[in-house]
Design a protein around this nucleic acid. Structure first.
Lengths: 419, 419
DNA sequence: CGCAATTTGTTCAGTGGTTGAATTAAATGA
DNA sequence: TCATTTAATTCAACCACTGAACAAATTGCG
């Protein structure tokens, strides 16, 4: 008896819709555009044909549609070795659809524009303490930043296809911010306040405004910034609270209600300090921004959070003992929580984002120590812990990126819109 | 500005292969068969047409292929209300392909046959302490059970399309059992020992033998036994060790290397009892079978594990204080670990399987108490904790089910095989 | 310089599979 | 008995992919 032996079964094709006649072209448009987006260097039509298994004739037809829709451009012919007609490289258009990324956080507002290729074409961060500001006022200020971003996009020949707003809290399926504890918000209808001010010409299949948790979007940003593929990793955002975005097999896992990633209340000392969540010994009480700053003796200085983090990093770099101890202890607590996650999900990568991105050099050793002690499979397979590629404040960029990914995933919507 | 407002972004179409001409029919065969499998009552061709969006003509053609391939049968016309030609109901064939499920566990062997519809057509459990038995001998005994199952399938007109073997340990991508601690196995090449004895006529697209972790397969069994849909839940198997199968959006999540679900070593008392994994205060030390039995005063009785569990359940039912306390404490430990998982993944359901299935009535209250204390979103959304629908020892059934799911997910393989 | 070799991209008749409308089939109800 | 209603099939039309042939553009060798 011969056959291919494999351990893991076939992944069941999750309720894919039926394939109608027209869906055929629709799907192939998405496949070809996806390959162009994922390719390391500009592929030729012939490359795409061998890559996808389609014939060159089909690929040419599909690419013609994509070029006609201004999603793809022909780049300068790549320098080729060997004989034969030189290939014409295909790249994502730098003047087509773009995504608008927005963020409301505790101590800043942000807006950015990301083009199809994932390049950040515009990015503005506006520092301000938003805690004393009403939701309506905060949204009004954000709308001004969004208008600037819109103008910048116009100047660069980009068309905004949708917007994504990152908030530090729980968001329900309708975009309602159910709870943003560190902002003091509860049941705020952000889409209702913001939607009419954005003036986005809707693209079929692309939601004009998505509101999502900041940690989720930062994880998405990390996903798109990294090499193509379907990685699984945990992205931990250390802001005032601690949130995590979970990327599994290349897509964000949001949980049954979109509220996944609440790692801040994993117990790391079950009989430890009481937490405002009602539990005891939650991670947030040992590795949250406040806990670290207090342990390092930086409390009461009334610095903005990001400045305090930078100060702390500076102290640690200078060898300040209190800072080093505080960071080591926080790293240990993080390590306990992360070990549980890695044991459960068998992840091979943990990304430190938000404030942790800056503090990563001093957090990593303690985290790795805990991982090697507590992860059952540590002997066979390494777990990588690294700072976020996009650095802190990446949620807006991740959100904008998710808009263009939506266009790339279903290009027909865009093509139908612009004749 | 109008449009659909939604919180969560579009799920990116994960690297789907290109759609060739022939794939069209291939995909629609899968879609239609999937709907027939998922339907609550036998659907008619017309039902399928409105359901899938295909035309009735196309559905008829597709269904003809499926009936010709003996995957689907016409059932007796369903009693219809109202006028009109009565519909002919379509059901999965009870004489077509079937799956062989096998299990090697610490104290029993099992083999079963499951047909397309998910009905268990044959099931044999052979009790034996496998710890003193060599892997080769254990596989030889299992092969005898498998031969019986094969004969039973033949008698019922079923054709085995593939086999799945459940083992209580870590399995790598090649089917190698890297470590089965409670069985004392290490780096055992089970496919090499078993494959040639199974005599399975391979079906294209269906792996002839899959080896997987027992907890994963039990979770798959639970998934298929439940209502159709794409649920997310955690299935906890309490055997000698504690394993978990994680089902996310209707598919099993296996992790980067297939080793997800190691919940037994989540710390629930970080400075608690030392564990053989090297950590301290692991869940297994508080809610593992040994820990519970010891706490209940049932240790040293040298009973087989399942008998001991039944005995314990009997004592608890009779109000034995030691048993009740032991179960309450185990439930509390489980609740701490489960809370962490629920906070992280936002699951709405936790299923108690393996030995826990029997003990669920006494474990649930303590688990629910911890959940309500520790889960941040508990106020908005309930978490259901329930015993496994398939009961204990469901891994073999789940494995057999995963074989038929593979056939349903890609029926062309089967159709190509049998003219 | 010229020509074969090579690779890219396009053209075009052919085909598979879906489409939509018309038709047949089989029941209910007035 | 016949109009009404719903189910399923038939068939010409059509859409998008296929495969082979062809045109285009470059390298390399004599």
């Amino acid at each position: 008896m011969t056959g291919v032996w494999q351990c893991q079964g076939v992944t069941t094709t999750s309720a894919v819709g039926a394939v109608r006649q027209g869906s055929l072209r629709e799907l192939n448009l998405a496949v070809v555009l996806g390959r162009i987006a994922a390719a390391a260097r500009p592929p030729s039509r012939a490359d795409l044909a061998t890559d996808t298994g389609l014939t060159r004739a089909t690929v040419s037809a599909v690419v013609d549609d994509l070029i006609g829709g201004r999603l793809v451009c022909e780049s300068a012919p790549a320098p080729r070795s060997g004989a034969g007609r030189p290939a014409r490289g295909l790249v994502l258009a730098d003047h087509g659809p773009a995504g608008l990324g927005l963020e409301i956080n505790v101590d800043y507002l942000a807006a950015c524009v990301v083009d199809l290729a994932g390049t950040v074409r515009h990015h503005v961060v506006h520092r301000a303490d938003l805690r004393p500001v009403s939701p309506a006022d905060a949204v009004a200020r954000l709308a001004a930043l969004a208008a600037d971003a819109h103008a910048a996009a116009d100047r660069e020949g980009l068309v905004l296809a949708g917007a994504t707003l990152a908030v530090p809290g729980l968001v329900d399926a309708h975009g309602l911010v159910r709870l943003a504890p560190n902002l003091g918000w509860r049941d705020v209808d952000v889409p209702g306040l913001l939607a009419d001010r954005l003036r986005i010409d809707p693209v079929p299949g692309v939601p004009p405004l998505v509101v999502d948790n900041e940690a989720n979007l930062a994880a998405l940003g990390e996903l798109h910034a990294g090499p193509p593929g379907a990685p699984s990793f945990l992205h931990i955002s250390g802001e005032v609270g601690i949130g995590a975005g979970i990327v599994l097999n290349g897509s964000l896992f949001r949980g049954a209600r979109g509220w996944s990633g609440e790692i801040g209340h994993v117990p790391v000392r079950p009989d430890g300090r009481p937490c405002r969540c009602g539990g005891r010994g939650c991670l947030e009480r040992y590795a949250g921004q406040e806990a670290i700053l207090t342990a390092a003796g930086l409390t009461g200085t009334d610095l903005p959070a990001d400045t305090a983090t930078t100060t702390l990093a500076g102290l640690a770099a200078d060898g300040d003992q209190a800072a080093l101890t505080a960071l080591h202890d926080a790293g240990t607590a993080l390590g306990v929580a992360v070990s549980a996650v890695v044991n459960l999900l068998d992840l091979d990568t943990v990304v430190l984002g938000g404030g942790y991105a800056t503090l990563a050099p001093w957090l990593c050793p303690a985290i790795l120590t805990e991982l090697s002690r507590r992860v059952l499979t540590a002997r066979w397979a390494e777990v990588t812990v690294r700072p976020a590629a996009l650095g802190p404040r990446s949620a807006a960029v991740g959100g904008a990126g998710s808009v263009v990914r939506a266009v790339i995933a279903r290009p027909v919507g865009w093509l139908a819109r612009s004749g």
